[in-house]
Nucleic acid binder design. Structure first.
Length: 734
DNA sequence: TGCTAGTGTACG
DNA sequence: GTACACTAGCAA
């Protein structure tokens, strides 16, 4: 008996309600299992999208709408139910549409979208050709009928016999008619006959489903790190590897063992730089069972990896944050390297999610273990370890043999031991040592341009960005005043635009001024900015980096690291500033194998991060942070959610954000609601955004909190009349 | 009256 | 996200 099936299909669009019903006419006797399958469906008057089947039923649903039919059932295996559960969790936890999660989770290449009528772009891994028909293989009646049709002893009947005795479904790729004739040892006339009666039919098959089995790697002699790992009953282990370099945080042997057992292992890395650095060794260790999944690989390779994950191929799956979307059919382990890294956070576009947290949920739904390996774990993870939600492993280590000098700049100025505005005698001495021994001095100064501002000597006015209202910095190279946020630029005016006085003064310092000072102090020595260095030739003796996380390859060669002004990081108005300062200090020393000495200049008195770093004491930083954050209920002692209101109309956005703040403060008094804070324009359009920050106590479940927010804000947005307003959430921002 | 730009609504 | 219907504003 045949009847139509009604499918609930999730479409990859950012809608509040992205699930729609379609009709599927099934051709076979049994009810096909379509949940988890990808289907192409018509949507609206012109478009069609590939969506995910969430449910099926044969009872006609209510509503008099005329339902549209499914256009095509994609030949991928179904997405495992626990993966769909994970995606639903992401949409709910990170407060975004399930359609947005689907868009992120299944890349464009795997779900061809297009215009109705026009042939959908065929996916590259499909093989097209002729094979014995599915009906022949599955339907005994049809088989009998065909055998009756073809005269006994005829060439066609012999060919059918051959198919029935030798062919098993899926063991041959689709063939051309000529190849089919060769296989069946018959003529094109007979093939044509078989085609007409329906013994063979044209079909499309996934190329990868015919992959031959990969030999799994042998498991080798254990490394010390793998031996140290123990995982408790919580199935999550936080592994603290103090003073380690990135390659020392990969438990190769532990991962190999799981792969050798025929399991899929997900290895998450925080950024492309680390990934490139580790790739040769990973390739050596895992060989053919290494599957790569990140944006710089070819689309074909990503698709192979995706299909391998979905078909349950054992192996090590390596990727950046997007690899958490791989639909693993037989996951055995998740390993996250440097879980605290900001590279795991995605801000734009939605879903705004943290891959570390999402990967933990992936492992949770798959009921497998997770390893978090880090040199400086986040306060959040450490707290969970303290609460015994994670088991905690401290890997033995040897403190590095590096000379650490700290210079308190106010005192240095007082003693007149500062040259070129910002370099103490200690710093200059350390740089000179590096130059003399033929090493590399790497100076860190996270301040772009030449000067902080151009200021009028008479009225003290400084040109500001018309979009962001921040003071424009002066860039020496382009001789322009530039906005550090949106990139707006203008030339340096000769006269003050406010009062007309002449002789604008350049106030404050930037990395370009540092370079000029260095050139005066070290004449004849090549001094380069990090971005100018030609990586193919020998490194210059001095490199200036405007990032506190300089490129790994410079750290690898550095013999001296100089922090020109620690305060630019430490004094950020971010409750994670101290934690971040400690982490970057540690990295600038521990990831540099050649390092002899490190000099840190600072203005603040005894920053905790610096003292903890000098004493090589992670615990000291943690204790300080936990106390600070507990006192004012910051994460991990509260939940942090940011709400954004964006519109071209500034006053309306501000007004709505203000109303939201008052409503939230009145109705949720236990939650600290801050803002609205104006946000810099981040897109090219002239939209203005306001941010409202919520810090909610942990007593209430996060689900309850989110529901309460929706209940209060949805009516506000519904009532709002005026220019287009965009409102979105950012849960657990980093 | 005709055109354009902006907005609201629905999409199964 | 895209398509289409609708409306306000404006020029002919």
């Amino acid at each position: 008996m045949q009847y139509p099936l009604y499918l609930s299909v999730l479409v990859p669009l950012p809608l509040k309600q992205p699930i729609f019903t379609y009709i599927y006419e099934s051709g076979s006797d049994e009810e096909p299992q379509l949940v988890g399958r990808l289907v192409t469906v018509p949507f609206g008057p012109k478009k069609c999208y590939t969506g995910l089947v969430l449910a099926q039923q044969h009872i006609e649903p209510e509503g008099a709408h005329r339902l549209k039919p499914v256009l095509k059932l994609l030949p991928y295996p179904p997405i495992p139910p626990y993966i769909i559960e994970l995606w639903q969790w992401v949409a709910s936890y990170y407060m975004c549409s399930l359609g947005e999660v689907l868009t992120a989770a299944i890349q464009q290449g795997f779900r061809p979208d297009g215009t109705q009528g026009e042939e959908l772009k065929r996916t590259a891994l499909m093989l097209r050709g002729w094979l014995p028909s599915e009906r022949l293989m599955s339907d005994a009646h049809f088989r009998g009928y065909l055998q009756g049709q073809l005269k006994g002893g005829s060439a066609a009947e012999k060919a059918l016999q051959k198919i029935l005795t030798t062919y098993r479904q899926g063991d041959k790729p689709p063939m051309s008619l000529q190849e089919l004739a060769e296989w069946l040892e018959t003529s094109s006339y007979t093939i044509n006959k078989l085609r007409k009666v329906g013994v063979v039919e044209e079909c499309e098959v996934l190329a990868s489903s015919l992959n031959e089995a990969v030999t799994l790697p042998h498991h080798k002699v254990g490394d010390a790190l793998s031996k140290a790992i123990t995982i408790g009953s919580s199935r999550i282990a936080l592994i603290h590897c103090p003073n380690s370099r990135i390659e020392e945080r990969i438990p190769y042997d532990f991962l190999l063992q799981r792969v050798a057992k025929g399991k899929q292992v997900l290895l998450l890395l925080p950024n492309i730089e680390v990934l490139k650095q580790l790739m040769p060794e990973l390739q050596k260790q895992f060989g053919a069972s290494l599957y790569r999944y990140f944006s710089t690989t070819t689309e074909k390779e990503r698709r192979t990896t995706w299909l391998a994950a979905l078909s349950g191929e054992a192996g090590l799956y390596v990727g950046l944050r997007a690899a958490v979307w791989l639909p693993f059919a037989s996951l055995g382990l998740v390993a996250i390297i440097d879980e605290e890294d900001r590279g795991y956070r995605q801000y734009e576009p939605a879903p705004r999610f943290t891959a570390t947290n999402t990967a933990l949920m992936l492992a949770h739904f798959a009921k497998v273990e997770t390893l978090l390996l880090s040199a400086t774990p986040s306060i959040e993870s450490y707290t969970l370890a303290l609460q015994q939600k994670y088991s905690f492993v401290e890997v033995p280590h040897t403190p590095p043999d590096v000379r650490v000098q700290t210079v308190w700049m106010p005192k240095a100025f007082e003693e007149h031991s500062v040259q070129g505005r910002m370099l103490s005698f200690q710093m200059i001495g350390a740089i000179r040592e590096a130059i003399d021994e033929g090493g590399l001095a790497l100076l860190l100064y996270q301040r772009k341009g030449f000067a902080r501002s151009a200021t009028c000597p008479k009225c003290q006015a400084s040109p500001k960005c018309p979009h962001c209202h921040t003071t424009l910095r002066y860039m020496e190279q382009s001789r322009m005043l530039v906005c550090g946020i949106c990139g707006y630029y203008q030339s340096l005016p000769n006269h003050c635009p406010e009062c007309g006085a002449g002789g604008m003064q350049l106030i404050g310092t930037g990395i370009e001024r540092l370079r000029r000072a260095m050139e005066e102090l070290f004449p004849g020595i090549p001094i380069k900015m990090a971005e100018e260095v030609d990586r193919r030739t020998k490194l210059p003796p001095v490199i200036l980096s405007s990032s506190y996380q300089p490129p790994q390859e410079f750290l690898r060669s550095a013999t001296t690291v100089g922090w020109v002004q620690l305060d630019l990081l430490y004094a950020l108005s971010d409750y994670r500033a101290n934690e971040l300062t400690f982490r970057y200090l540690m990295q600038s020393r521990d990831e540099a194998p050649q390092l002899q000495r490190i000099v840190v200049q600072h203005f603040a008195t005894a920053p905790n991060a610096l003292t903890a770093f000098e004493q090589n004491d992670y615990q000291q930083m943690l204790d300080f942070e936990l106390e600070e954050r507990h006192a004012i209920l910051l994460p991990p002692f509260s939940r942090h959610i940011d709400i954004y209101f964006e519109s071209a109309a500034q006053s309306q956005a501000f007004q709505l954000a203000t109303t939201a703040v008052t409503t939230l403060q009145n109705k949720l008094p236990e939650v600290t609601t801050l803002g609205p804070a104006p946000m810099p324009v981040h897109k090219k359009e002239t939209t203005i955004g306001y941010k409202v920050t919520l810090l909610a106590p942990l007593q209430r479940s996060s689900k309850q909190l989110r529901d309460a927010i929706y209940q209060l804000l949805d009516p506000l947005l519904k009532e709002y009349r005026g220019p287009k307003m965009n409102c979105y959430y950012d849960v657990d921002p980093l």
